[in-house]
Computed example of a mutant assay.
Amino acid sequence: MVARCYLLEIFISHSHSDRGFVNILSLELINRGFYLWVDNYELEPNQTLDTSIHAAIEECSHFCMFYPRVQLILNGT
């Protein structure tokens, strides 16, 4: 087993409306030596989303959430 050596291990949560931005950001962070868990990259075909997300949150040292601006406006915040 090879040990992982990353600057940070980051779980990224986002809505589909932010996918384009998150993809660009993800590639930039990966190129800079960060490990990311993003559902559209890491989810295996035979895994359930809930199980995979819980395991990834436990493994990652940081959590980053992108909340759609439209949703914030609709919620009145």
Rank of each mutant, 00 (worst) to 15 (best):
residue 1 M to S: 08
residue 1 M to R: 06
residue 2 V to F: 06
residue 2 V to C: 03
residue 3 A to D: 06
residue 4 R to I: 07
residue 4 R to S: 11
residue 5 C to V: 13
residue 5 C to E: 11
residue 5 C to P: 00
residue 6 Y to R: 03
residue 6 Y to H: 12
residue 7 L to W: 11
residue 8 L to E: 10
residue 8 L to G: 00
residue 11 F to E: 00
residue 11 F to C: 04
residue 12 I to P: 01
residue 12 I to K: 00
residue 12 I to S: 00
residue 14 H to W: 06
residue 15 S to N: 13
residue 15 S to D: 10
residue 15 S to A: 14
residue 15 S to L: 05
residue 15 S to M: 07
residue 16 H to Y: 06
residue 16 H to T: 14
residue 16 H to F: 09
residue 16 H to W: 09
residue 17 S to R: 14
residue 19 R to N: 05
residue 19 R to F: 04
residue 21 F to Y: 10
residue 22 V to E: 03
residue 22 V to D: 02
residue 22 V to A: 03
residue 23 N to R: 13
residue 24 I to N: 07
residue 24 I to P: 03
residue 24 I to Q: 13
residue 24 I to S: 09
residue 24 I to V: 12
residue 25 L to Y: 00
residue 25 L to A: 02
residue 25 L to C: 00
residue 25 L to P: 00
residue 26 S to N: 01
residue 26 S to F: 01
residue 27 L to C: 08
residue 28 E to W: 08
residue 28 E to G: 01
residue 29 L to C: 06
residue 30 I to N: 04
residue 30 I to Y: 05
residue 31 N to E: 14
residue 31 N to A: 14
residue 31 N to S: 15
residue 31 N to T: 02
residue 32 R to P: 05
residue 32 R to W: 13
residue 32 R to A: 15
residue 32 R to G: 01
residue 32 R to E: 14
residue 33 G to H: 11
residue 33 G to T: 10
residue 35 Y to Q: 12
residue 35 Y to L: 11
residue 35 Y to G: 03
residue 37 W to N: 01
residue 37 W to K: 01
residue 37 W to L: 02
residue 38 V to D: 00
residue 38 V to E: 02
residue 39 D to A: 05
residue 39 D to E: 13
residue 39 D to K: 05
residue 40 N to I: 12
residue 40 N to T: 14
residue 40 N to Y: 15
residue 41 Y to M: 07
residue 41 Y to Q: 07
residue 42 E to T: 01
residue 42 E to D: 08
residue 42 E to N: 03
residue 43 L to R: 04
residue 43 L to T: 02
residue 43 L to W: 03
residue 43 L to F: 09
residue 44 E to K: 10
residue 44 E to L: 11
residue 45 P to L: 10
residue 46 N to Q: 09
residue 48 T to F: 11
residue 49 L to N: 07
residue 49 L to H: 11
residue 50 D to V: 08
residue 50 D to H: 03
residue 51 T to Y: 11
residue 52 S to T: 06
residue 52 S to L: 04
residue 52 S to H: 14
residue 52 S to W: 14
residue 52 S to A: 15
residue 54 H to N: 15
residue 55 A to G: 03
residue 56 A to R: 01
residue 56 A to K: 03
residue 57 I to C: 11
residue 57 I to Y: 06
residue 57 I to M: 15
residue 58 E to A: 10
residue 59 E to C: 06
residue 59 E to K: 11
residue 61 S to D: 14
residue 61 S to N: 10
residue 62 H to E: 12
residue 62 H to A: 07
residue 62 H to D: 14
residue 64 C to W: 09
residue 64 C to Y: 06
residue 64 C to S: 09
residue 65 M to I: 15
residue 66 F to T: 10
residue 66 F to R: 07
residue 66 F to V: 15
residue 66 F to S: 08
residue 66 F to E: 04
residue 67 Y to H: 07
residue 68 P to E: 09
residue 69 R to G: 05
residue 71 Q to N: 09
residue 71 Q to L: 13
residue 72 L to R: 12
residue 73 I to A: 06
residue 73 I to S: 08
residue 74 L to F: 06
residue 74 L to K: 14
residue 75 N to M: 10
residue 75 N to L: 12
residue 76 G to Y: 00
residue 76 G to T: 00
